[in-house]
Design a protein around this nucleic acid. Structure first.
Lengths: 234, 234
DNA sequence: CAAGTTGATATTGTATGCAAAATACGCAAT
DNA sequence: ATTGCGTATTTTGCATACAATATCAACTTG
């Protein structure tokens, strides 16, 4: 019953290929609206007018609707059948909770990295961390992304998928707003690297969870300063 | 012309026109395609033909496209710009990983429930568990859902959102296929209830993580029996 | 004057049409 | 037989058109 092995078993494209061409207009719209929400330009409870969005971006309603579906899945929009979409009523507690979940999954990834990361990647990780110094003129936000990307690189696909999802519906610019956070983050990263270096699975997990927990507080504070929750109701 | 030449290989959805008062047609399509994927009718790697899906369900491509976006967000479809959507290449490891993540979040919810659940809800939980006995003629699947719903009821909104998301892209019918699993699940539930009763946060978390971990193995086995990963051809 | 009703308007949900890109096919050349 | 290329067909992506439902305002009526 064993199938004859196909004579032409092609080598798998080795994973990394992905010429990554840009998606369609729906992605543009989703990015645009997401930005509006996370910057507070669209307050929680605001109704989403499909025509208005379409006109603002310069597209028809088809891509707008697809973008709304995406943002609904991300939890940024609440979709009521036949009644349109509203910006989700995110509270400060929701943001904290979100980061707690983010920390849970990131902690899992860090624990896996503590064991699975190659020596080469460990060296790269340290190199990235060494350049992660406030006031050095380095792009802290970019280096931070590199740091976490490296740690998450050995996570299984499904975990990566969830990390990407959780990352999207979160303000990624709070680094600019939170003065003093950079220094704290350096310490957190230091602790994470140490645990990973020692191949301490549980320590890496806990260090990462703690890092994300603190990040959540900082992000919530930043959003508060931006007047994110000022609109009491509609 | 080519009236009958249409190789409509897609199954016609079972009673789809009964309750038309739900959300839009996109929900119907998403549910339909999700079922096809999780039952193995659509093998990993299969291309999704929008017209074919639309014809099978009896709708146009607009709701089909929105459903594809939803399933893409759920990780069940891989969407390649301008090249359509393919059923994601889920491996056994992916399913295991998925349940691990599910366990992580469910464990968090269980820990919260151990502290926050009201005495009334604790009594209800026990009542549900008492009826959760294999061979008693009870709807085990329904009681299982009730059990977990009760535990998750005190979780914060964002956590609930993630739980719902993780629950969707998982076969929810494996109870029928896994003989002997019922008995094991009873023991797991028992341990979870005990920890919750003792207000043992960490114990509840660990018991729930263990439960979901085992569930993942069972689900993967069930999928394997269904020939889910028989990707001998392409 | 309040409350309910009814018609007009606006907005969503779905279907269809159309252009661009990708795939499939055929044939020639090496 | 395989590779390369040019053409035809299919399929996606977006725009537009149509239908259904919700929202709102004016009006009527108790």
């Amino acid at each position: 019953m064993t199938d004859q092995a196909k004579p032409s078993v092609l080598p798998v494209p080795a994973g990394v290929s992905a010429p990554r061409r840009r998606g369609g207009l729906a992605d543009d719209v989703a990015t645009y609206v997401r930005e509006l929400i996370l910057t507070g330009a669209l307050k929680p409870g605001s109704r989403i007018d499909q025509d208005a969005i379409g006109e603002a971006v310069g597209v028809s309603r088809s891509p707008v609707r697809e973008a709304i579906v995406v943002l609904g899945q991300e939890g940024l929009l609440e979709i009521l059948p036949r009644r349109g979409a509203m910006v989700a009523q995110l509270t400060r507690g929701d943001v904290i909770d979100h980061y707690e979940l983010f920390g849970l999954v990131s902690g899992r990834a860090a624990g896996i990295a503590a064991v699975d990361l190659s020596n080469e990647d460990r060296a790269d990780l340290k190199s990235i961390h060494e350049r992660f110094t406030p006031g050095s003129g380095a792009d802290m936000s970019a280096l931070n992304r590199e740091f976490h990307r490296m740690i998450n690189s050995t996570a299984p696909p499904r975990t990566k998928w969830l990390l990407r999802l959780l990352e999207k519906s979160v303000p990624s610019h709070y680094y600019e707003f939170a003065t003093g956070w950079d220094e704290t983050a350096v310490g957190h990263h230091q602790a994470i690297i140490e645990a990973i270096t020692n191949r301490d699975v549980d320590g890496a997990r806990r260090a990462m969870e703690h890092h994300l927990h603190e990040s959540g507080v900082v992000a919530a504070d930043a959003l508060e300063r931006q007047g994110f929750w000022s609109q009491d109701d509609l």
